[in-house]
């Protein structure tokens, strides 16, 4: 299956490990990724808030370049990109006058027009739905019953009328993937809550008050690691964890995996593709457990 691939800002910059592991995994699952070179940032919810008309146009431009590849699916690997693109797409697909104005503007600046012909889907949904049988074959090395806490984050679940993939209060997709990879999914209430990332710079204290819930609950539930489909959640959980440790005096040391790394470990990807050295919290305890006797 050939899809247009939008990796977004973080996977191009501070979370390169997400991009390399996704790219390495794709052919094993039967996914052909067509990378988009001319696209920009989706605005991460910030341009949506600051200049909403510009947000709509930037996202329409990404959708237009995706449509120009001939693919009917635009695959994302970030929750925030998924919401921003799906929201813009719904606005354009359900309002002919709005679509006409925006598409005309795109053409005026030399970009391809957009006719609403692309569907935006997150990698998580594609693996949990279209490629689930293939996943079971690919994940041949397994995870030796590793206890993994799924962390969904917000903008892949809510607002559900825009996302529509699963029950936003009792999602199942990450659990199903952990299961297929040979891990044990840990259940805890905060798996559908916020990691605090959007306000981690402007309101650090409030953000840390949000971040502590999933990490603490996952630890109490006995998780060896957490997995998330969002690089912003990953950055918050992985990099800001040290600030939680400093403010609470507790040593969490909770390893945080990108979804593609979790599958990648079970599929036997190379170290150079998984790139765990780019994480702040060490992955060593997890790797030791996987290498140990089963």
């Amino acid at each position: 299956m050939r899809v247009a691939y939008y990796k977004g800002c973080l996977a191009s910059l501070s979370a390169k490990e997400l991009d390399t592991s996704t790219q390495a995994l794709a052919p094993m699952l039967g996914l052909e990724l067509e990378e988009l070179d001319a696209v920009t940032c989706c605005g991460a919810g910030d341009i949506h808030e600051a200049e909403p008309d510009y947000y709509l146009h930037l996202n329409a431009r990404i959708l237009a370049y995706a449509q120009a590849t001939g693919a009917d699916t635009l695959m994302t690997i970030c929750n925030v990109c998924t919401l921003n693109l799906r929201q813009a797409n719904h606005m354009l697909q359900n309002d002919a006058a709005l679509l006409a104005r925006v598409s005309e503007n795109l053409e005026k600046v030399g970009a391809p027009p957009y006719s609403g012909g692309v569907e935006v889907r997150h990698f998580l949904w594609m693996v949990a739905d279209d490629f689930y049988d293939q996943l079971k074959l690919v994940a041949h090395k397994g995870l030796k019953g590793l206890k993994v806490a799924p962390f969904y984050g917000c903008q892949i679940l809510r607002p559900s009328k825009l996302m529509g993939f699963e029950d936003p209060d009792r999602p199942w997709s990450l659990e199903a993937i952990i299961d297929a990879c040979g891990g044990e999914a840990i259940d805890y209430p905060a798996k559908i809550k916020c990691c605090g990332f959007p306000i981690i710079q402007a309101r650090e204290e409030t953000a840390l008050g949000e971040l502590i819930q999933p990490i603490e609950q996952a630890m109490e539930a006995g998780a060896d690691a957490m997995v998330t489909p969002c690089p912003l959640c990953h950055l918050s959980l992985d990099a800001w964890q040290q600030k939680l440790e400093a403010s609470t005096g507790k040593a969490f040391r909770m390893p945080i995996l990108h979804l593609s790394q979790l599958i990648g470990v079970a599929a036997g990807l190379e170290k150079s593709e998984l790139r765990f050295r780019r994480h702040v919290v060490s992955m060593e305890p997890v790797l030791a457990k996987l290498e140990g006797p089963s």
């Binding site: 606005m91 359900n94 709005l98 825009l162």
Partner: peptide
């Protein structure tokens, strides 16, 4: 910029 998209968004069924 937000208001212009509201009519379209209100047309979406709750897929869930």
């Amino acid at each position: 910029g937000h208001v212009q998209g509201e009519r379209a968004l209100s047309r979406i069924e709750h897929a869930v």
